[in-house]
Design a protein around this nucleic acid. Structure first.
Lengths: 159, 159
DNA sequence: GTCGCTGCAAAGTCTTTGCAGAGAG
DNA sequence: CTCTCTGCAAAGACTTTGCAGCGAC
């Protein structure tokens, strides 16, 4: 394999930037910037993993017990963020949706069916082919997502 | 664009074959071949679309009203078929899962966010890159799925 | 102050499960 | 005949919504 253009976990978005985007978004829609909303954004940002609403809620409760953030607020905020394209959701397994930050910072997913870990990657060749395909069909692509399921290196050793 | 290897809707699985696979599967697990199960398989086979459990149930009720097939049976059978890799599920939009036949006959998906239509395609280049990527990482791929979201040609005209 | 936001609990969805009778092997 | 399936209805899991008080601006 020669010219490999694949990059893994190339995180580039700054939190400041993100927070500003969020604030602009809120202002633009006459919405308010609340502690809960900030904590949710922050928790999402500081999680490498993809979080379920439940997990996110739990993590917030542990870290900010005084807030008593309700699960409803988590759902409401995730919906808001998803509508605004600030987070993306992935459906994984039988049930449940997992959320991650940064739709702008596009990447695809390697999902280990043993441990549930999601690894992100971007491959230029695939991205290019996707555009070729949609162009060919006159399909106006707005987004795409790819998931590869299998067993990660670590889990293979343990089996 | 020169050597295009993309193919659309290349349906090759025969119903006979499918039915036999299903029967073998059932026999192997000491399960019974019931009318309901056959009707579900048949309905899936004769739908070009990807069906939700609800839609599938509704379609069965219309076509075979005398059976009074319960939605629970539809769910149970879909779970069985999915476990056995005879159908695959796709999560689409906010809610709901859509099922389609033939995990063996792999393909990716173009999903129109306007009309909800799902078009299938296979692209050799992408398939190859996926293998390269997983090989590179020591990840043992068992399956993968790709969805491209956007607006199809037809809907673009109508907007 | 105003008006959107939040937590709570109640209400919705969608899916699964328990059970007793029906039916495949 | 036996043991799995099925439909029904009830129970579950996950999300959304209504409301009254709270808090950002």
């Amino acid at each position: 394999m020669s010219n490999v253009t694949t990059n893994f976990n190339d995180r580039t978005i700054e939190y400041e930037q993100l927070l500003n985007d969020f604030k602009s978004l809120l202002k633009k829609n006459n919405l308010k910037f609340t502690i809960q909303r900030e904590v949710i954004l922050d928790t999402l940002y500081n999680s490498d993993e993809h979080l379920t609403p439940e997990l996110l809620h739990h993590r917030i409760q542990s870290k900010h017990p005084q807030l008593k953030t309700g699960i409803a607020t988590v759902y409401r905020t995730l919906a808001l963020l998803e509508d605004s394209q600030m987070v993306t959701s992935l459906s994984f397994g039988a049930q449940g949706k997992k959320y991650e930050l940064g739709a702008k910072e596009h990447h695809d997913h390697l999902i280990c069916t043993e441990c549930g870990t999601i690894t992100e990657f971007v491959d230029e060749d695939i991205e290019k082919r996707q555009h070729d395909i949609t162009d060919e069909l006159g399909f106006k692509m707005s987004d795409h997502s790819m998931q590869i399921y299998g067993i990660c290196k670590k889990c293979q050793k343990q089996l």
